[in-house]
Design a protein around this nucleic acid. Structure first.
Lengths: 203, 203
DNA sequence: GTCTATAGCGCGATAGAC
DNA sequence: GTCTATCGCGCTATAGAC
């Protein structure tokens, strides 16, 4: 009777480790991150880390999966919304992404650099090809009759949104501090959709 | 007499190590790279690496400096050329960068991720702030009387050029292989300057 | 200058007490 | 489930022969 109640509100330890791992991996990358750092950050012992997750590698894969989901998960539902126009899609993606990236500024560089280290491993998890090539977004572009490949718009959209965060260490110095940098990012929420619409018209 | 001839055409060893290091560091990042890998790649012994460069750290800093130079060195001379118009600057930067990145596709992700790990260290080496804020390019933009901050154009320019290479692992899968991917990059050499000119006109 | 051999240490992982 | 203590590997760095 008594033993039935178990792992009910067990929001601790396992979740604490995952959060700590996420933090340390993001900051240092897989190679430079030490399991000892993660354990300390989580406020638990090193041995416990191997008790919950079998190894550093295993822990990393789990955390990594969630990060990838966060970075690309914003995209697909918006791209496949049949109710919105292209213009609205531009606005929503820009808004959502910039807000998310202001909160997690070094998410892209982490995901993209780890992705490069082992592209195969995450290929199926992304399923990017199907999500994009068969998306409502791509169809809507093709209906416009543009000669320019739909992916160019996607690259421009993501490039203009994400690159300023990837290059944050440099840009922040150039712009003169975090405050000015963030002000520019806020401006881009309105500017990027405008630029994309211009590209669309001329195409 | 015989011993005088020495280290004349000694383009070997030291240079071989640097090239090997560059390759291995780029592929694996600092933390995951092993000095043994570098030694093997250079076709020399492990001890020799510490003979020429004092340590892994020291070797990394030297290689890193050259990489940063490669990535940002393209920009400054073009941005400060008084003889060319804005339109010509767009064209030259796009052309030069895309050509260079086709040869060294994972240079940006390497530089940017290592830069993030230790931004202070490379701050003075870049001198990005002076190079950019006082550039001919920025002046030319301000003369146009645009209300949009000059850095937005710079971010768009670099974002549209560099991002597709940062995201290469994903994009290559999506586009269906290296060949298609490269074809898109070739197209962008002409498209990106056109888009930037549009932004300029409307601003 | 270039090698072999090894010192010295930090890491991930585990055994075993509680 | 959580801890302490420790193993054993693989790394950087160096000593010393040639």
């Amino acid at each position: 009777m008594a033993k039935v109640v178990k792992a009910e509100i067990d929001l601790s330890t396992e979740e604490k480790i995952k959060e700590a791992a996420s933090k340390v991996f993001t900051k240092k990358g897989y190679g430079n991150a030490r399991t000892r750092d993660i354990a300390e950050e989580a406020g638990i012992n090193l041995a416990l880390l191997n008790y919950y997750f079998r190894s550093k590698e295993k822990l990393f894969e789990i955390v990594m999966g969630e990060r990838i989901q966060k970075l690309f998960g914003i995209l697909t539902p918006v791209l496949n919304d049949k109710e919105t126009t292209l213009e609205e899609k531009f606005e929503r993606i820009t808004e959502n992404y910039i807000n998310m990236l202001i909160e997690h500024p070094d998410l892209p560089i982490f995901v993209l650099s780890e992705l490069r280290n082992d592209p195969e491993r995450f290929a199926d998890r992304l399923q990017a090809k199907t999500h994009l090539t068969q998306s409502v977004f791509v169809n809507q572009l093709q209906e416009k009759g543009t000669k320019i490949h739909p992916f160019h718009f996607l690259m421009n959209l993501l490039g203009m949104i994400i690159f300023p965060f990837v290059g944050k260490p440099v840009l922040q110095t150039v712009t003169g501090g975090e405050e000015n940098y963030l002000a520019l990012m806020e401006q881009r929420k309105k500017l990027i959709p405008e630029w994309l619409n211009m590209m669309l018209e001329k195409a």
